[in-house]
Amino acid sequence: MNFDPLNPRFPLGDFVHEVIRWLQSALSGLIGGVRWLLDLLYGSLEYTLATPIFLIMIAIFAAVAWLASGWKLAVVTAIGFYLIRALDLWLPAMQTMALVLVACVMAILLAIPVGILAAKVRAVSLVVKPVLDFMQSMPALAYLVPVISVFSIGQVPGIIATIIFAMPPGVRLTELAIRQVDHEVVEAGQAFGATAWSILRKIQLPLAMPTIMAGINQVIMLALSMVVLAGMVGAQGLGGEIVGALSRVNVPLGVEAGLAVVIVAVYLDRVTAALGHRSPLARALKAST
């Protein structure tokens, strides 16, 4: 390949493609494993959510809302999900919830340890920061392409794209939360002979929990904002309905599916936000004087 400085061409994309192809063959076992795992998780969750009669599921959702927050959220939840059923979007809504929940659980499982490591080890923080910036500023559509090329189309690339897109605030807020914990309290742990693990578990995590929960809440919201893109790579669910409505200019379906996404979003947002108020710290601070 000869390079003309006056007319520079740098085939970065080809290069990345080569790397991906190489990775694909080198890591085919790993990729297969990931695909198998995500398929299994999604499949069983979708089955669990979509199989029972919708009234039972609505009761369960409402009960969760009640436990997490209170009767008001439970009532709103029941009405909202009943409306989804009335719009005949029950199955896609359950598929979307399954996808979002699987993606969020994976994103959180990755984000929290990485965030803790970043808070504890400066080098990790220095590496992680630009990677997160990259993940967040890269347009989601642009990394869908390599994701599809590795995982082809269907639920799995949708879930992976969602994980990549939704994870950064989880990492960032976890790191911030751990760093924010009062240094003197951590020193108190050290001064009484606690191990690093004990300090993390008994002091840092409980005190960081409200901020970490805020991060988790953001992860879920970002994941929901990805459902349409997930639909574009062939994931089933409300995203798929919206993509279909778009291609057929089906206004009623577009509006209805959009509304259903909003209902699911509000539900997950409120429930996780309410859970944030139930950490030991929040409960302690609520104790009246």
Partner: peptide, 23 residues
């Protein structure tokens, strides 16, 4: 070092350094 801190030395902090989430 941990054993020494645990069994031989304890400390009272200027700003108390209590664990706010515990009774």
């Amino acid at each position: 070092l941990r054993a020494t801190r645990r069994d031989k030395i304890s400390m009272v902090f200027q700003h108390f350094a209590l664990l706010p989430h515990r009774t």
